[in-house]
Write a protein that binds this DNA or RNA. Structure first.
Lengths: 323, 323
DNA sequence: ACTTGACATGTAACGCGTTACAACGGTTAG
DNA sequence: CTAACCGTTGTAACGCGTTACATGTCAAGT
């Protein structure tokens, strides 16, 4: 492995000049540049990334912190990685598996200068703890955050959810259930608030036992059918789901149980993923890719780009066969 | 930001001793250790990751190179990231979007010592070019590789595919179609070979126009219905799909076109993902998570673990409602 | 009493680029 | 003819830990 010193000696210049060539400094004569480039090519030289990071004080790496990678976050992940890559940044994935200790390691990497910034997909630790890492570098969250110092690219779920509630009401549904994710998250609270407001507006009854939380996956969605639709007494005639995965599980299990969709049960997903398209699930479109771009530009402090992306950010409802 | 020098001065010891404390060297007296630890805590010190990587000559980071992240690779991705994390390694995602230049950047990161090793999910560049990077660090591929020097954790698709072909023949199908991925990849060739062998064995006709390639996604799967099942003349009565995504698209579009599954058409997926479970697609189970673990241990040169994982590596067929 | 060795700690070089500042030769303005 | 300046290149310190080797101390072994 050759290093900068060797290049300098062979070329007959100082390290500084070689470094200038590497960094495209204008203060190098064309002949010198050519000479040095030739030697570098000859020795098959590339600068050591760690040395560069150490002396420059930045790594061009951004950490992404999540419990695990699932279908729901793929659009965000892909869009973020791509945007970062276009700007010369790489993305490191930290998964915690829901373990706070493990997640903390990701935060520490910011302090240790292994990454220049952090994107938080999910945060298991206390938000205040996360906030205490803000002094080590920029942090942006996809989720809504309680802490003002951590910026978030999440949109107010309130508006999106209202679209869904309004839609099923227009379809003639009156017994509307909610299937939600993390119990006390801002998302869940916003969605519930939207639900209650719309129900009140239309003078429909709010049945709290029809709002389930802690539902995330396909399998969770299947379980919901039993809990919500198979017991005795009255059943909902519409379910708004935490995401399309849940909607898919619900749809599938409902059909297996001979519940007719949408005649007996309307189902609305969230995020409008490929899966919703495939299964024909009505879903609330959430411009996730644009949020990811925003996240990146916010981290870089390039607000202008983020603002220009902002315009794309609004919910819409895509009607398919489940409503 | 405090550094090791400051800790050493404040504690009244040399840098070397402080470093020993950081690295849990046994050659430090307990009192010294306590003193130094106390100072470190007081100054809120953590060692700079880049400096550590530079002097140790390794980063504890592994690069993962793919065209983009999709559902099909999530089990691999998650399993790999988790295994790596348990062993103190982090995973950096490089996506190329199918661009060879972009992919090359990922390879370069190995040479530049930004990552200690590489896992290749898909390789757009010439395999020989990838091979030329072997001298910079360990490389393992998920895909089968033409080059012997690059190890692969892919299983021989031949065996798995045979299960699928045999299964649909047992179900009474005789006009069997293949829907495959990358045209000339080893996977595709193996699968075709398995198909031809089984068809010959059962004296069934091989119709080359029923083997499509370049099909990867849900939408591709939907398209296949038009190409394979809607024209005039004879149609296949079974389709083996490149993966579960394709199977899902195919199933969905087939139903939309009033083709009865499995009566008129049997569908078999590949990989046995969550999606196959959800949609009730018969699928060939591919122990992807175990392959990912293998990949990691191969990279580390810890063959023993890899071998112990090896036992789990065999295909099986999971029958569901599409056959 | 003397060697041998274990243990604790220090010294200094090393890994590899980057960059502030200095220096040198030559040009141009006054 | 000189001061001011530009372009080119070098010097040396810096970013921050790690580690091979050296040194000093004290106890066990003979």
């Amino acid at each position: 492995m050759s290093n900068l010193d060797q290049i300098a000696k062979l070329a007959g210049f100082s390290k500084a000049t070689v470094s200038r060539v590497l960094n495209n400094s204008p203060h190098v004569s064309p002949e010198t540049r050519d000479t040095i480039l030739a030697i570098m090519k000859q020795l098959d030289y590339v600068p050591n990334g760690n040395a560069v990071s150490l002396s420059k004080g930045r790594t061009l790496q951004i950490g992404m912190c999540a419990e695990g990678i699932n279908e729901a976050m793929l659009p965000f992940l892909n869009s973020f990685v791509e945007t970062a890559s276009q700007n010369g940044y790489q993305t490191i994935i930290y998964t915690s598996g829901g373990d706070a200790k493990q997640e903390l390691k990701a935060f520490e990497e910011l302090r240790r200068k292994r990454v220049d910034a952090l994107v938080i997909i999910t945060c298991v630790n206390d938000h205040a703890l996360l906030g205490s890492y803000c002094k080590y570098g920029p942090i942006v969250s996809w989720q809504r955050m309680e802490l003002p110092e951590i910026r978030s690219v999440a949109m107010n779920q309130y508006d999106g959810y209202k679209l869904g509630v309004e839609h099923v009401i227009e379809q003639g549904c009156t017994r509307i259930a909610n299937v939600l994710g993390r119990p006390s998250s801002m998302n869940t609270l916003s969605r519930l608030a939207a639900y209650e407001e719309m129900m009140k507006k239309h003078h429909l009854p709010i049945r709290h036992e029809w709002s389930l939380t802690g539902i995330y996956s396909i399998r969770d969605g299947e379980r919901v059918v039993r809990e919500l639709l198979l017991g005795g007494g009255e059943h909902p005639d519409a379910v708004l789901c935490a995401n399309d995965l849940v909607a898919a599980g619900l749809l599938n299990e409902a059909r297996r149980q001979r519940i007719r969709v949408p005649e007996d049960l309307a189902i609305v997903g969230f995020d409008n993923t490929e899966l919703a398209h495939t299964l024909g699930i009505t879903s609330i479109d959430n411009p996730i890719a644009a949020q990811a771009q925003n996240a990146f530009y916010l981290l870089l402090g390039k607000l202008n780009q983020a603002e220009s992306v902002q315009q794309k950010l609004q919910f819409s409802l895509v009607k398919r066969v489940t409503t």
